[in-house]
């Protein structure tokens, strides 16, 4: 497996997202310009210019026509994927951290960071069929429960719930209609440190995985918030994702950036680690980055995945045939 090195960002990568067809890969970085690549050969198609700060997260709608991005410039933007033209800008009073399109793409949620006395919040926006009808009004705003930042929020099944997680180590499930908090993860079994990532299973979201600085990733039932699995690693995690094809999870992270010194790359553990989803056992690793891994994404076809690092590179890995053959089952 020879990775394709995609050098297009000048600053650390923050997020990676495949479109539904799996032919396009969107990357976000701290350098203001989200970029789109051909996911097959790593060729750069173009960038989306307009943000004036680090871009933290993005999502692309089902038919790949619209891209939404959230940025530290206190805004989230809608883009035309094809032309790269910004369609609409949602403005906030603090940095926008994460974004997610709902099932059906008629709604989008945008989370904002706490700022002075302003708490972190989840804003739900209606996405208009016709971009010219788009308004910045929120359908509902959920706030006040999370201590510190919400690092990621996603839609639950049938858009009835929203699942959020962040710096206060707790995973929360909200009712989208009423804005009520329905469930919270148990602090006993839950994460012990900041949750850095949250990713839904590609199968429509039967479960989701969270990665945390406490050196573990956890798999949760999206409906009951039942803790299904825990994957223990040796490094603080920044990213976690699941293979759509096999029962594998991929975890990435590494020693905190501020603590990385002149040490050997092995000491930092900048490896993407593969775990058996069911047995919770480590099965392999993919080396390459020379800084912590900040983002991971699996191609919806399950045959390739991308990783983005603090080192400013995105790496595209096409799986060897061996990977699919060597299924270490019973």
């Amino acid at each position: 497996m020879r990775p394709i090195l995609m050098k297009g960002h000048e600053r650390p990568l923050t997020y990676l997202k495949y479109n539904k067809d799996g032919d396009l890969l969107f990357s976000c970085a701290k350098d203001k310009n989200p970029t789109v690549w051909f996911s097959d050969n790593g060729e750069r198609l173009g960038t989306y210019n307009g943000h004036n700060g680090a871009v933290w997260c993005c999502d692309v709608c089902r038919d790949s026509s619209l891209l939404i991005t959230s940025s530290a410039d206190w805004s989230a933007k809608l883009w035309s994927v094809q032309t790269g033209v910004p369609v609409f800008t949602f403005n906030f009073d603090s940095p926008a951290r994460s974004v997610d399109f709902s099932t059906g793409d008629k709604l989008a949620l945008i989370t904002t960071d706490p700022f002075f006395r302003l708490p972190s919040a989840i804003h739900v926006k209606r996405i208009a069929q016709d971009p010219s009808d788009q308004t910045g009004e929120s359908v509902i705003i959920l706030d006040g429960r999370h201590q510190g930042r919400i690092n990621r929020a996603v839609w639950g099944p049938l858009n009835r719930t929203i699942i959020s997680a962040g710096e206060d180590c707790v995973v929360r499930v909200w009712d989208t209609e009423t804005g009520q908090l329905i469930r919270e993860s148990d602090p006993e079994t839950g994460h012990k440190d900041k949750i850095t990532s949250l990713e839904k299973a590609i199968d429509g979201g039967s479960n989701f995985i969270t990665g945390s600085v406490d050196k573990s990733a956890k798999l949760w039932d999206i409906r009951t918030l039942e803790l299904l699995k825990t994957y223990r690693t040796e490094q603080p995690l920044n990213a976690a994702t699941m293979s759509p094809l096999l029962d594998h999870v991929v975890l990435g992270g590494g020693q905190e950036v501020t603590r990385v010194t002149n040490t050997d790359h092995r000491a930092g553990k900048f490896e993407a680690k593969f775990y058996d989803k069911i047995l919770e056992e480590e099965i392999g690793g993919v080396k390459g980055h020379f800084g912590p891994i900040n983002a991971l994404a699996f191609n919806p076809d399950g045959r390739s995945f991308a990783s983005g690092g603090e080192d400013g590179y995105a790496r595209l890995h096409h799986m060897d045939q061996d990977y699919f053959n060597s299924r270490n089952r019973l």
């Binding site: 089902r62 709902s102 099932t103 059906g104 793409d105 008629k106 099944p157 049938l158 858009n159 199968d203 429509g204 039967s206 409906r223």
Partner: peptide, 13 residues
């Protein structure tokens, strides 16, 4: 459950 909710999802889309 996913099967049960299939119709609702279709409507959403």
């Amino acid at each position: 459950i996913q099967e049960e909710e299939k119709l609702e999802r279709q409507n959403l889309r």
